[in-house]
Amino acid sequence: MSVLPVRILKELRRRGVLGINRRNAEYTLHWNPRRLYKTVDDKIITKRICEAAGIPAPRLLAVARHHFELRQLGAAMESVSNFVLKPASGAMGNGIVVVLARDRDRFLRPGGRTVTLPWLIQHASSILSGLYSLGGQPDAAILEEKLNVHPEFAAIASDGVPDVRVILYRGVPVMAMTRLPTRQSGGRANLHQGAVGAGVDLSSGRIVHAVLANRHIRNHPDTGETLIGREIPSFEKVLDIAVAAGDETGLGYIGADVVVDANQGPMILELNARPGLAVQIANRAGLLPRLKAVDREAATKRSRAERVALGREIASSAKEME
């Protein structure tokens, strides 16, 4: 099964796989001005931007920036039955606490564990001190509404909320994948922690390919449900809000993470200015031909709907070329 490095190199070039050096030099460095990073790195700013533009995002219930605001945060936690407590500038899902329900003074977390209000306040205090932020900078704790797994996803996600990552280049969606939590990933939707990455065809909105830790799979490892051919609910809307959010940031090359809520439909969870390249593995396709096609079409002048259509067109013609 081993393939010679030279053959791999040729094959990757043929498929137009984007490597890290090139992503940095020609895409992130070129299209994402450093000063705009804070709009995506700070989830509070991201939410504010989405709200101003009328883009759906999980509701912000409360924010604590200083320790004296923790009492108010506690009061907010007591007033709702379920919520997510997380750092505003956290990385890779660290420091996120999900509360599903409340039984008098016990708060129920996924997996059956319960915690108390003082424990949650203490956790929020650690967030403020920068325990979970990049580089230990002081951070803000945010309380967010908890989203519900869409019934379409219920059979193919374990212990967590799956999301759809859409790669946007110059306002055009070029590739997408859905990240499905597994028991091994502990309910997180991070591929290197053991979540499933499933490539989603932009034109059909269906899963066309799936990988688990660089291994091709057809079924979800926990539930055994078939993945290939499954349709992402409200995919049209997913692409639309991803493009809308991308436009608000001013960044040219980003990854938008969209969650499809059972009741409210697609919502922007967060945006990423340095999206990873694993989406190519999940789709078994290279990004470069699509990025170049976007460059040829001088896309930024068109309306949102036209750009979504352009992305779908480019994706399907790229598939035919395979």
């Binding site: 791999i8 190199l9 490597g19």
Partner: peptide
């Protein structure tokens, strides 16, 4: 600094993409 070709690690990471369509 101006090298935009693949890193050796890219070859390892994306080697699955270079293999045939077998599943």
């Amino acid at each position: 600094g101006g090298y935009t070709g693949y890193r050796l690690s890219d070859l390892i990471r994306f080697r699955g993409l270079a293999e045939g369509e077998r599943q």
